[in-house]
């Protein structure tokens, strides 16, 4: 799985979609609900369901990151699965709100 910056992925188990903001330093598998995500344009494998411990949900517009590899994604569509890299659950990036400057 080549997690290039800007590449877009969709969940195999729910409606979630994500775009890679920062790639991992070493190759890895981006997962949702415990299953590898698939390229946006690809066909979804049928019949998969989210693992019980990977069903925390994905919120649209939130950024999720993996400390170990430095990878960061932006959720572009919400879903019921939760995101992980090689089985490590991604953490929510708590962004400090900046005063509006534009």
């Amino acid at each position: 799985m080549e997690l290039k910056p800007g590449s877009r992925w969709k969940s195999a188990v729910c409606t979630a979609e994500a775009v890679v903001v920062r790639p991992p330093k070493t190759p890895g598998d981006l997962q949702c609900g415990g299953h590898p995500m698939v390229p946006l344009a690809a066909e979804k494998p049928a019949g998969l369901t989210a693992a019980a411990d990977m069903s925390g949900g994905v919120a649209v517009g939130k950024r999720y990151f993996d400390e170990e590899s430095g990878m960061e994604v932006l959720a572009s569509k919400p879903g019921t699965g939760s995101l992980a890299l090689d089985g490590r659950p991604l953490q929510l990036r708590e962004a400090k709100a900046l005063p509006s400057s534009d």
């Binding site: 800007g6 903001v21 517009g61 950024r63 932006l74 962004a95 709100a97 900046l98 509006s100 400057s101």
Partner: peptide
């Protein structure tokens, strides 16, 4: 490039963070 602009936007603005009555 797209990546520079989107990086600025997603790191400095909260997605849908504005209330409905806000206008710029």
């Amino acid at each position: 490039r797209h990546r520079h602009l989107t990086s600025y936007v997603i790191s400095s603005v909260e997605f849908m963070g504005s209330e409905e009555e806000e206008a710029a």
